[in-house]
Design a binder for these strands. Structure first.
Lengths: 141, 141
DNA sequence: TTTGGAGCAAGAACTATTCTAAATATTACA
DNA sequence: TGTAATATTTAGAATAGTTCTTGCTCCAAA
């Protein structure tokens, strides 16, 4: 990457998050995801980021997303075999996939609910991740 | 497909389930899944079924699995971007993916639990499917 | 300034799955 | 029963999201 003066960092993203060095590319990916709450795909991130970093490659977007996921900065969300989507909401929550619009919405648990208590899991089992996905149609408002 | 006398149907699978005509191939796929509780992938089904139907093709296995899923005879289970797995258990349940062995286990809900009641979903929303997947390590017994 | 490692870009490769076209099997019905 | 219409199967090609490879660039430490 050649240094382009027009691409000096402007907004304040920390140099490092959870031990991950925030390079220019990772910053852009992260910043875009934080603004966008639509659970974009890697390709959608790529298209959008290109406006700021015209030379970025799709592979780099995948690399950035993977790095961010592995450092628990964002979450990867999968619906069936559709392209992975990415989500900056780290709270434990589920995802509702609206079949009519194709949009994805976060689903919170009702207060005081701990999913682990409701499942019949053998004792001492280590649960590293729980994923809840719903599919259906949002009511017309 | 030529009729092979050695392959006359022996076990009792109905001619039709949920309106789906049970062809020889579908029978084999279904029968294998019912016996196997290990959530096999399409390819695993294919390899195993070939013993009984040497001429079956992978595409047919996919066709059969899709038909069975669409007629609510089996369920398709996805873990992240791994190959889809198939499950003959139609009860509402989740899946636990044991990272150490790679095996998948059904997870029941504790009695009286209705997932829908625990999630913060807008009223009148039609939920067609709920999927719960856990990832972690089973306790050493 | 040199060196080593991390990160990036471009495109090739991979792989689960779907599609296509032709062959075969089954059903409907004259 | 015979024949047309429909459904299913097969084999292989195609697709698409993702990962891998290679060479280059950047940055930090010595």
């Amino acid at each position: 990457m050649t240094t382009d003066p027009s691409q000096i960092q402007i907004t304040s993203v920390p140099e490092e998050i959870n031990g991950l060095r925030m390079t220019r590319q990772r910053q852009e990916v992260y910043r875009f995801l934080m603004g966008e709450r639509n659970h974009p795909t890697a390709n959608e991130v790529f298209m959008r980021i290109k406006e700021a970093l015209p030379n970025i490659s799709l592979a780099t977007v995948y690399n950035c997303l993977e790095a961010l996921v592995q450092h628990h900065i964002i979450r990867q969300v999968n619906f069936d075999r559709e392209p992975s989507r990415y989500c900056p909401n780290l709270e434990e929550h589920g995802h509702f996939h609206d079949e009519t619009t194709g949009t994805i919405h976060d689903v919170k648990f009702k207060p005081g609910i701990n999913l682990r208590d409701l499942l019949d899991i053998p004792p001492n089992t280590v649960i590293k991740d729980i994923e809840i996905t719903l599919r259906g149609q949002l009511a017309a408002s």
